[in-house]
């Protein structure tokens, strides 16, 4: 087929894709090398490569922005939230897929409706509820909404996946006298590894980049996540450009590594997520 295609089309394709690639990666490349550039050099010429490569921007950002604390918080929120969402979703998915209860169908449709609910529809009451329960400004108070907001997509993915697991596999084990919870641990969990992976990767990305819960449900520096700390940097210190670039890099670098490793799974996850709805 390819010989039928004329050169102008190919040229146009290269031009369009090249432009998009340049636009997508260009600002990030600029961010990367500028983070090693002393601020006076940035002011002198924004585009030039650093003459004196320096790590001092990073050292300063890390110290003044208390990024170490924020980094640690982000790691805790993201990993605990992701693990809990994935585990709860697969358990519920097994219940919805293999037990035909009316209550199950009702609960499932509630999760589907949850796809439309925005953070903003719940944040006011949540803030009030958490204050009254005494979990406002605690790690738990941040992690619970992370888990809950990961659930709708995760439950949908898990249910669809477990539905496709042959009933015979589950039934033979049940007849052999294995309890339902044993079936869950011994059969469902192992065969669900691929969907667990998809859920974990999508949820991890969302949790790492989450902003509004960590911003509104905590006060003071100790419990802020990276996006929240980085955001507070932008307004206050906006003339120390080098430091700002470094702070942005600290928040971005883990995700770039994550992307380098899990790129294919991530793409598949987004594509699947779109197909399942």
């Amino acid at each position: 087929m390819s010989e039928r295609r004329s050169a102008p089309w190919k040229f146009a394709a290269y031009a369009v894709l090249g432009l998009f690639t340049f636009l997508s990666v260009g600002p990030l490349v600029w961010l990367l090398y500028s983070s090693f550039k002393p601020t006076p050099e940035i002011v002198m010429s924004s585009i030039a490569l650093p003459r004196d490569w320096t790590l001092s921007n990073y050292a300063k950002a890390w110290r003044l922005g208390d990024l170490g604390t924020a980094f640690l918080n982000s790691v805790v929120y993201t990993s605990v939230g992701t693990a809990a969402t994935a585990f709860l979703a697969v358990a519920a998915g097994y219940g919805f897929a293999k037990f035909s209860y009316r209550a199950g169908r009702v609960a499932y449709s509630l999760f589907v409706a949850g796809l439309l609910i925005t953070v903003h529809a719940v944040v006011v009451p949540l803030f009030v509820m958490e204050s009254r329960l005494g979990i406002y400004n605690t790690r738990l108070g941040v992690i619970l909404p992370y888990i809950a907001f990961g659930l709708p997509t995760a439950v949908l993915l898990a249910t669809a996946y477990i539905k496709a697991v042959p009933d015979s596999l589950v039934e033979s084990a049940t007849i052999d006298g294995a309890s339902y919870l044993r079936v869950f641990a011994a059969i469902i969990m192992p065969v669900s590894t691929p969907v667990l992976g998809t859920i974990a990767i999508l949820t991890f990305l969302n949790n790492w980049n989450e902003f509004i819960f960590a911003y509104l449900l905590t006060s003071g520096r100790k419990l802020k996540s990276l996006p929240v700390s980085v955001n507070s940097f932008a307004g206050v210190l906006n003339t120390d450009y080098g430091m700002q670039f470094a702070a942005l890099m600290v928040a971005t670098l883990p995700m770039l590594l994550f992307y380098a490793v899990f790129r294919n799974q991530l793409m598949r996850g987004f594509a699947e997520g779109a197909l399942k709805e």
Binding site: A107, P125, A148, F184
Partner: peptide
């Protein structure tokens, strides 16, 4: 009981963090 054990943790958390606050809103 097994069904409840599987489904309730996710559902209760979801109700508490999303459904109830939407109703309150």
């Amino acid at each position: 009981a097994s069904f409840a054990a599987l489904v309730l943790p996710a559902t209760l958390l979801y109700l508490a963090v999303i459904v109830v606050p939407v109703a309150v809103s």
